[in-house]
């Protein structure tokens, strides 16, 4: 690990159907704020946030894209160079989950091969404490979300931009998976920087002192164990489904 605590810039893109709460997730993460009836995003909005994870300082450079289908042709401009993507759906809207799976497929096909993807089932506040049943507001089960995440090698969280539930955790989890590289000076350093792409798994685990294990080159952690979790979050939103940590050989 570097001792100079370099800033790692991470380009992150948000994708998902209209009105699932993409802008609200970013607003919560960047400003710890929430607005009801936030106006629809047109084109894309750009925001940044720094956070420190272990010895790393990560600066998220976030492109929050518009969700409506008509704007979809703009999306490649924003995910083209992204190192991470947040694919968001609304746990009360099954159509938004289908759309999320489309985005995941498009990212796998079109985006950088080592892109880190987190799947977020947002609006958890609407179904928190709800008992399963016919009239339940929840329309996408935790298991469905988890299953997709496992199959596709994604991080998975259920979040609420309104309550703040799991919002920071998503970004922290992405930050964890970001290899140390691309500090401002390193960015142009070519192959030398690429060397730093390889992540020492033991470091990650040591950093966080988490319950975790490594299996077939994947890191598996119970995510709620990573951070002080005063809310005692025990929902399945707290599971950390990793992909491959070592992206390049």
């Amino acid at each position: 690990m570097s001792t100079s605590n370099p800033v790692t810039a991470v380009k992150l893109v948000l994708l998902g159907e209209a009105a699932v709460g993409k802008s609200s997730l970013v607003l919560r993460f960047v400003s710890n704020d929430f607005q009801e009836n936030k106006e629809p995003t047109i084109g894309a909005a750009f925001l940044t946030q720094r956070c420190t994870i272990g010895a790393k300082t990560i600066k998220f450079e976030i492109w929050d894209t518009a969700g409506q289908e008509r704007f979809a042709s703009l999306a490649p401009m924003y995910y083209r160079n992204a190192q991470a993507a947040l694919v968001v759906y609304d746990v009360t809207k099954p159509a938004s989950f289908i759309k999320a799976r489309h985005w995941i497929r498009e990212l796998h096909e079109q985006a950088a091969p080592n892109i880190i993807i987190a799947l977020c089932g947002n609006k958890y506040d609407l179904i928190e404490g709800e008992i399963e049943g016919e009239d339940a507001k929840r329309k996408v089960s935790v298991e469905e979300g988890q299953k997709v995440a496992e199959e596709e090698g994604l991080l998975f969280f259920e979040t609420s931009a309104k309550s703040g539930h799991n919002v920071n955790e998503v970004f922290m989890a992405i930050g964890h998976k970001i290899p140390e590289k691309r500090s401002e000076t390193e960015r142009s350093a070519g192959d030398a920087a690429r060397e730093a792409d390889r992540v020492d798994l033991s470091n990650v685990v040591n950093d966080t002192q988490a319950d975790g294990w490594v299996e077939n080159g994947q890191i598996c952690l119970k995510y709620s164990a990573l951070y002080d979790d005063e809310a005692g979050r025990e929902s399945m939103g707290g599971w950390y489904f990793p992909g491959n940590i070592t992206q390049e050989d």
Partner: peptide
């Protein structure tokens, strides 16, 4: 900076934002 990144909205919403 690409013009599309900021001017798309200027056209789509006629500077109303």
């Amino acid at each position: 900076v690409e013009f599309m990144q900021f001017a798309f909205r200027w056209m789509n919403c006629l500077l109303m934002r």
